[in-house]
Design a protein around this nucleic acid. Structure first.
Lengths: 156, 156
DNA sequence: TGTAAATGGGATTACAATAGTCCTATTTAG
DNA sequence: CTAAATAGGACTATTGTAATCCCATTTACA
């Protein structure tokens, strides 16, 4: 649960590869071989990144891909959204805001889940490719908060 | 992507129902009927909540379930974890910390994704059942941060 | 100017995970 | 005793993801 799709995973690995081995244009074949992943499947992911302006492509022999902007200006959300793998914590949180579940207007789930989803999106939008190319990403000391025992005291 | 499983979704709805209609013990049948979901499938979710100490059960006729502690002391993470639907953003982030991917020790993905996952867990651990029984949950003004354009130019 | 190496992309297949069902055992109030 | 409830294993159906196949287009360069 809450797992990134392989398409997204490969897309992230690919742009990381491009960002970390900046010898200009890189072919899908090279990336696939270096990362040990299916060339054909990776190609799909790269094509979507291209269509969404994250990377630029050059066709023909000696062709390949390059990042279209610096790694500091590419967010994790950009990479994920490019693959059209919409993030929705529950079914009714679609882009068109249409909720057609059996519980309809007295649904107690939609609103709080929308909030959770928004907070996840903040994390993804505020993490850049440059960040994930470093070994560590934390902006806050996560452990301190994690170790706080929820059951220990009241939250409200 | 990033979707809660139906088992978790039903578990949340069920404990919400218990928290919001606190007339003591409630049967699985009543919850299933009121929420319009499969009784048999819901039962599995309730049994796991019980095994994990979130709710208590009473067998036999006039039996049913009650929350085992106040809604302020039950976190969203508690409910999710009870279903054994492990949250892992990428495959190699399993509980036993064993990474067996083809990229092995020079994996550039594991560490940053572990960080993302930890931050998602913070959200889930810090949101209580009491919180999600209210219509709105936000602790921070999410919109303000969301509207910040990462690239400095249009991303949407 | 032919060809090899690259991207572009539709269609299909294979597989795994999720969702849901079925069935039976056990418990217990009346 | 029995009806109504939980407990839980085993199975099936459905869906979504991952991967493959195949062919068209582009382009550097011998």
């Amino acid at each position: 649960m809450f797992k990134l799709s392989k398409k997204v995973e490969y897309a992230i690995l690919a742009v990381q590869y491009m960002a970390m081995n900046s010898k200009g244009i890189v072919s899908a074949k090279e990336i696939a071989e270096q990362l040990n992943i299916s060339f054909e499947f990776l190609s799909k992911a790269l094509q979507k990144l291209m269509k969404n302006g994250i990377i630029e492509s050059k066709q023909g022999i000696k062709g390949g891909y390059v990042l279209s902007r610096p790694a500091t200006l590419i967010s994790l959300a950009d990479i994920i959204n490019a693959q059209n793998d919409e993030i929705k914590v529950v079914d009714c949180l679609t882009e068109d805001s249409e909720c057609s579940c059996v519980r309809e207007e007295d649904c107690t789930l939609r609103s709080p889940m929308q909030d959770i989803q928004q907070r996840i999106n903040i994390i993804l939008k505020s993490t850049s490719l440059a960040d994930i190319c470093k070994n560590r990403v934390s902006l806050i000391d996560a452990n301190e908060i994690l170790n706080y025992k929820f059951e220990g005291k009241s939250n409200e």
